[in-house]
Simulated scan of single mutants.
Amino acid sequence: MFEIRIICDPTDADAITKGLAGTFTTSPPLRKPTRSGKRLRLYITADHHTGDDAYADAPPIVHELADLTDLISCYTDAGLLPPSSVEREFLLRRAALLDRMAIEEAAVSAPVAVEMAVETAEAAALTLSLFDRVKGWAGEHGPEDRLWARTSHRGYVRQEYAAWLQSTRP
């Protein structure tokens, strides 16, 4: 993890933030005007954990979405609550799917769409993290690890998804 400070033109701030978010796991930028007020200082915490490693063996997004729908519909159609293991798998795969979509949005979309995609992915990551805390789940870096508070819970999702993929592959 590292911190980045950028001084830039206010009109460039969104493009810079988008570019960094497409390369690193980043925190939302803290924006402060310079003393002159003509430029903008951006403070961003970044981590090398990109989705490339975690999602290298992941199925295409459309297949993941179909699998997720099938996973939960068999329980909801029958009016049943899924067992805890299935609920966790659903939360993990949903958070990973939203994270992957946010990564793709960062590469092709306008800053407003990227911000919304990142917020949605972060909310899903936090939901998984809270579920894992309650259930006592502990991966390499558990859901309560200070690393996630400094960077993003999306990194936790990537860690857990990569481990899940490895455990489900022959």
Score class of each variant (00 low, 15 high):
residue 56 A to E: 13
residue 57 D to M: 04
residue 58 A to K: 01
residue 58 A to H: 05
residue 58 A to S: 12
residue 59 P to T: 06
residue 60 P to Q: 05
residue 60 P to S: 01
residue 60 P to K: 02
residue 60 P to C: 02
residue 61 I to L: 15
residue 61 I to A: 15
residue 63 H to T: 14
residue 63 H to W: 09
residue 64 E to A: 14
residue 64 E to C: 05
residue 65 L to H: 03
residue 65 L to M: 12
residue 66 A to M: 04
residue 67 D to T: 09
residue 68 L to K: 00
residue 69 T to C: 01
residue 71 L to Q: 04
residue 71 L to S: 00
residue 71 L to E: 02
residue 71 L to G: 00
residue 71 L to R: 05
residue 73 S to A: 07
residue 74 C to F: 01
residue 74 C to G: 02
residue 75 Y to C: 09
residue 75 Y to G: 02
residue 75 Y to N: 04
residue 76 T to Y: 07
residue 77 D to C: 07
residue 77 D to F: 00
residue 78 A to R: 12
residue 78 A to H: 03
residue 79 G to I: 10
residue 80 L to S: 01
residue 81 L to K: 08
residue 83 P to W: 03
residue 83 P to C: 05
residue 84 S to W: 06
residue 84 S to I: 10
residue 86 V to C: 11
residue 87 E to L: 15
residue 87 E to S: 14
residue 88 R to T: 13
residue 88 R to N: 04
residue 89 E to T: 14
residue 91 L to A: 15
residue 92 L to V: 08
residue 93 R to E: 06
residue 97 L to D: 07
residue 97 L to E: 03
residue 100 R to N: 14
residue 102 A to G: 07
residue 103 I to S: 05
residue 103 I to R: 15
residue 103 I to P: 00
residue 104 E to M: 12
residue 104 E to S: 12
residue 104 E to Y: 03
residue 106 A to G: 15
residue 107 A to G: 14
residue 108 V to K: 11
residue 111 P to D: 02
residue 112 V to D: 15
residue 114 V to N: 06
residue 115 E to A: 15
residue 115 E to P: 03
residue 115 E to M: 13
residue 116 M to A: 13
residue 116 M to F: 07
residue 116 M to W: 10
residue 117 A to G: 11
residue 117 A to V: 06
residue 118 V to K: 06
residue 118 V to L: 14
residue 119 E to Y: 08
residue 120 T to Q: 13
residue 120 T to D: 12
residue 121 A to L: 12
residue 124 A to S: 11
residue 125 A to R: 04
residue 125 A to N: 05
residue 125 A to C: 10
residue 127 T to A: 15
residue 127 T to C: 03
residue 129 S to K: 09
residue 131 F to K: 12
residue 132 D to C: 06
residue 132 D to Q: 02
residue 133 R to T: 07
residue 134 V to R: 04
residue 134 V to F: 07
residue 135 K to D: 00
residue 135 K to V: 00
residue 136 G to S: 03
residue 136 G to H: 00
residue 136 G to D: 04
residue 137 W to A: 05
residue 137 W to G: 08
residue 137 W to D: 07
residue 139 G to A: 10
residue 140 E to C: 05
residue 140 E to V: 10
residue 140 E to A: 13
residue 140 E to K: 13
residue 140 E to H: 13
residue 144 E to D: 14
residue 144 E to C: 04
residue 144 E to G: 08
residue 145 D to T: 06
residue 145 D to P: 03
residue 145 D to N: 15
residue 146 R to G: 15
residue 146 R to K: 12
residue 147 L to A: 02
residue 148 W to T: 05
residue 150 R to T: 09
residue 150 R to V: 08
residue 150 R to D: 14
residue 151 T to K: 03
residue 151 T to L: 05
residue 151 T to F: 10
residue 151 T to D: 07
residue 153 H to T: 10
